[in-house]
Nucleic acid binder design. Structure first.
Length: 192
DNA sequence: CGTAAGATGAAG
DNA sequence: TTCATCTTACGG
């Protein structure tokens, strides 16, 4: 896909407005990407900053390689690897605006929580949340996006989005780098 | 080996 | 602000 042939930060920004779709056994879920973060090779917060390892290997795959990792022992996050093979960079998907299969998203989120129900804007407003809601799992590691049941669809409307660029969330190393992007005024982002 | 820290989320 | 929970990275 043309989009994935650009530099990582450009991709992180341009991915906003695209839809992420997952066709699973249980049903199809989809949402518009409203928040992303870029992780670069020379960036201390990047899992691939030091060297290639079993965990970060997917980041070194060709652009479009899916990288799913576990964090804090209980949550998972999805990334789409960017740049050429052997360059460890990726874009973390941080929030979606649900468009298809909201009932299934609700069901999946409820199964792993004690809450009664989630408001639509709480379904995918965070990297760990959207992974649950979309039914994404670690078995998808190394899958190629667009060649699997998890794929991207281009934006439907042509109007350009107002994009806010800011610092990333939840990291200590490289905390000052402006590598986070989100759609201005979106009620579906993890944090303003 | 032992252990601390981590790209989080929900409850108090 | 605290806790749940565990893999990975890195030092000894």
């Amino acid at each position: 896909m043309m989009l994935l042939e650009k530099d990582t930060l450009t991709i992180a920004k341009e991915l906003l407005g695209w839809s992420l779709v997952h066709e699973s056994e249980e049903g199809t879920t989809a949402g518009i990407i409203v928040e992303t973060e870029g992780y670069l090779q020379d960036d201390p917060a990047c899992h691939a900053y030091r060297k290639k390892s079993p965990r970060n290997a997917p980041m070194f795959g060709e652009a479009g390689t899916i990288y799913v990792y576990q964090i804090y022992g209980m949550h998972f996050c999805v990334n789409i690897s960017t740049n050429k093979k052997d360059i460890g960079e990726a874009v973390l998907i941080r929030a979606l605006e649900p468009t298809i299969g909201q009932d299934l998203m609700q069901k999946r989120r409820l199964a792993l929580s004690k809450v009664q129900s989630f408001r639509p804007h709480e379904l995918c407003s965070g990297p760990g949340k959207l992974v649950q809601a979309m039914g994404i799992h670690k078995g998808m590691n190394n899958w190629m996006i667009q060649e699997s049941k998890l794929y991207l669809l281009p934006p439907v409307n042509e109007k350009p989005l107002e994009i806010i660029t800011t610092t990333r969330i939840g990291i200590t190393q490289g905390a000052e780098l402006p590598y986070r992007f989100y759609v201005e005024d979106s009620k579906f982002v993890s944090k303003k």
